[in-house]
Write a protein that binds this DNA or RNA. Structure first.
Lengths: 354, 354
DNA sequence: GCCGTTTTGAGTATCGTACATCAAAATCGG
DNA sequence: CCGATTTTGATGTACGATACTCAAAACGGC
């Protein structure tokens, strides 16, 4: 509750330049510096330049903490996530909730908006429903459809910074994408499954929807590496399970029955429960190596019991926090610390479960 | 330079409680609330409790930005890293440098102190040389020796928060350890190498020093899993290469020559260059799978060229930033956001290089 | 109930910035 | 070169806290 240091060691700062220093250096008044700094009208271009030069010379950096204190500014961000029972989306929602309680201290307010999954028009409508006067930044798990791209463009035009999260819409006006490189993720899955399947055979690929850019990219990466580096394996046409465990289970069961010689399974979407169920229902046969995505509770226990061999994961918490940091930087007009913001592709096996 | 939003949307805060609200609620003056908040003397216990209750009732959270602004407080942190040519230490040093330029905005000053490697007394001396009046927090890559443990205890006693980084000293008074779980890392390496080596054989283990807790723990995790789950493999006694490429190369070359039937190599310390060199010098033979630690530039190119199969990595940047966040929270007397601070064990293969 | 000692209250200045107001100065058109 | 119109300066208040001082009030012991 109270600080443990008791303020014992309050020490003076290294004395970095303030607006007053800039004013003195530029030979103008504080008011003028303030006008330049906050882009208020009534400053001649020459004067503005003198101020800008003075700032550059002194290496002035505006103290955002003081500025925000004075402005009573709150950073208001919305996260648009798909509703439904998909575990990973749940993890994202939880991550937003957890993060919110910590960012509120820094005047960052987070709001979650749920939208129907796989539904471009609905997502676009949700984006349009956001009031630019009440929101400074948005992170959206994008379906890569024209409606969504347009809605993103409208929102950006109205001064709201938009980020895509987890699944990108590269040709949209989004300021940035926060998430893993899904082509690389697919390649990684192939590198693992390729090594886990020494004998020749075919591989089942399960995906959610060809509308989701992340799924499409994973498939691309996966098939490329399998074809190039593991010629003893071949990929069956993907099953589209709509990220729904029941559908996935049914379709996969059917494929396992119909296709002989299945050497491995790669689920690049959600619905891991369906994978487990299909494998349980299967008539006896040699163990089939399985690589899936997202370390959900189900995937976790399947790893432990040995049904799954590896899980490719993206840390939902990291992604949310990264999105928050990037949006804040965009809103502040600051550069982002890119090295910090690259989301890494985590590989989990039974031995390194967190 | 200046914000792009032009302050267009300055909006009033949700109105969270301030010290004035607490004072009113508790029926005391501002001065008293301040005394309680900063643990200044001259407040009766009953009054302090009344204030604490009022804070709890209102859900008061001290505005750290405002407090720091007023205090002109700077968080001064020191990072004690091993000097030498070891690439991972270089990455840590670079990470400190990069982070410093971003944290200076938040009044966080970082300093790097280099100490000789594998030298408990020297590290202890470096810790003792820090002036508690000039440093609020320290992160140290610990050698787990009695001198170091004592020095950490002395520093903590003098009011400096101490964190161990990368390599822990669990029985010391360090407030916390920032780094990966090295037993798990060793197990993970075994899980990978075990699958990569289908044929029976022996495994070379290369470590830096038995003084480094992280190396000891990795070895433990590795040998446990190999023994339990991959009975066709057995581990040779570890080579101690002192994290030096030249030494590692020489000793490994000798072992490769002396021991027939080596099925795999696990380098759990630094000196990856030595591993590559020894493999190049080796008389022809079947390819030997290799798993190493830390994604240094050398390890990277060895992954690409196919000499290494997998690299277990800890992200130096994440670790430094996590250490900074935790130290800041400790200094502020705030709880830490633990979920955010667990450092994950990254597995890199050729296909998912960043 | 008096006296000396805590404990508490009230007020003020400060941090670095935002923002509004009013007056003074510079610039411009004609 | 005058009057109208920018552009600039000076000043004050606010943000939410810290940190002082000085005086008033409450407390404890005898």
């Amino acid at each position: 509750m109270t600080g443990r240091d008791g303020g014992r060691k309050a020490e003076q700062g290294a004395g970095r330049p303030t607006v007053r220093d800039v004013a003195r250096e530029a030979g103008v008044s504080l008011a003028t510096v303030d006008r330049v700094l906050n882009e208020r009208p009534g400053v001649r271009k020459v004067t503005a330049k003198r101020v800008a030069d003075a700032m550059a010379r002194l290496g002035y950096q505006r103290d955002m903490a003081a500025a925000n204190l004075s402005k009573r500014r709150h950073y208001r961000m919305a996260f648009l996530l798909a509703e439904g029972t998909n575990s990973f989306m749940h993890m994202l929602r939880d991550a937003v909730g957890n993060t919110a309680s910590f960012t509120s201290m820094d005047r960052i307010d987070l709001r979650t908006v749920l939208v129907p999954p796989f539904d471009g028009p609905a997502l676009a409508a949700a984006l349009d429903a956001l009031d630019p006067e009440e929101i400074d930044g948005v992170a959206v798990v994008a379906t890569d459809s024209p409606e969504v791209r347009d809605a993103i463009a409208r929102l950006s035009a109205r001064g709201v910074y938009v980020l895509t999260l987890v699944s990108d819409a590269p040709t949209s006006m989004r300021a940035r994408f926060v998430g893993i490189d899904n082509v690389v993720a697919g390649r990684t899955a192939a590198g693992l499954l390729g090594r886990f399947c020494p004998a020749p055979g075919r591989i089942c690929i399960v995906m959610g929807s060809a509308l989701l850019r992340d799924h499409v990219e994973r498939r691309l990466g996966f098939e490329t590496v399998i074809a190039r580096e593991y010629p003893h394996l071949s990929c069956l046409p993907p099953i589209e399970g709509r990220d729904d465990a029941e559908t996935v289970g049914r379709l996969l069961s059917a494929q396992l029955k119909a296709e002989p010689g299945i050497a491995g399974i790669y689920n690049l979407g959600a619905g891991n429960r369906g994978i487990v169920r299909a494998l349980e229902e299967r008539a006896a046969g040699p163990r089939i190596p399985v690589v899936v995505h997202e370390l959900t509770p189900y995937a976790r226990s399947a790893l432990i019991s040995g049904v799954f061999d590896a899980v490719i994961n993206q840390d939902a918490g990291h992604e949310i926090r990264s999105a928050v940091r990037i949006l804040k930087a965009l809103i502040d007009g600051r550069p982002t610390f890119d090295a910090q913001e690259s989301i890494c592709i985590d590989i989990y096996m039974r031995d390194n479960l967190p």
